[in-house]
Amino acid sequence: MTTLPTSTDRKLGLVIDLDTCVGCHACVISCKGWNTENYGAPLADEDPYGADPAGTFLNRVHSYEVQPETGATQLIHFPKSCLHCTDAPCVTVCPTGASYKRVEDGIVLVNESDCIGCGLCAWACPYGARELDAAEGVMKKCTLCVDRIYNAHLPEEDRVPACVRTCPAGARHFGDFADPESHVSRLTAERGGIDLMPEQETRPVNKYLPPRPKDRLQEQVDILAPLLAPVSEDSAGFFGWLDKALDRLPGAPSKDETR
């Protein structure tokens, strides 16, 4: 049913820490691996070893250059997957009822046997979280690893989404946002977690933690610097003689150009 639930018992989702992410793409690979080998249609690769490789991914890492008004430029790695929106526009547009948001935990899923592959849900998503699989002709999206998080056959520590489990930097956190005392709710409150494109009014569940302000360079970084005097302006000795001799030759740079 494509009518969105008015509320969900739990709000499972991710916190992604942009301060911590190192841009290694391990989450991309573990996501592709888990979701190709387990639930639903495998994620296709088109021309994987050829000249023009492409494929379906449920999680992609962008990189952005951020230039503050003062200070050094920063490079921010930006993982992006389904945000499991509270007001998910992808669900309501679905003509067949293949897309739905679960009442028990708020996960947005696609029932692949009902999907006609019209692509309208991907059109409705502002975040590019849904991709139509070129081989299977059905819509693929992040399931929040629904086949891991409730899987009693897995050891307890593995019952989190594959991307969270694999992240070597600890930049991804999984939990219940409906519980104000949960790890993810507290992280969001402490670090000022934000919604992506709030003007689209999707009310995403996933939150992004902005990069912390970087330390400023002090006046004197290196305590040895004062002892290492810069090259003398009025050079003497052999190099001083050579400098003056070359200046007198034709084609020598003028005083201004040497600056």
């Binding site: 942009l18 991309v28 023009d52 490789p53 492409a54 494929g55 379906t56 991914f57 992609r60 890492v61 962008h62 990189s63 952005y64 250059e65 951020v66 230039q67 503050p68 008004e69 490079l75 921010i76 930006f78 992006k80 991907a122 502002p126 991709e131 139509l132 070129a134 934000i194 919604d195 992506l196 494109m197 992004y208 902005p210 990069p211």
Partner: peptide
């Protein structure tokens, strides 16, 4: 889209993949 624009300018530095996608 990125939430990185407070008192900064943002520029796309590198796409997620070298190839194209859906």
């Amino acid at each position: 889209a990125t939430g990185l624009g407070t008192a900064s300018t943002v520029r796309a530095f590198e796409p997620p993949h070298t190839g194209t996608n859906y």
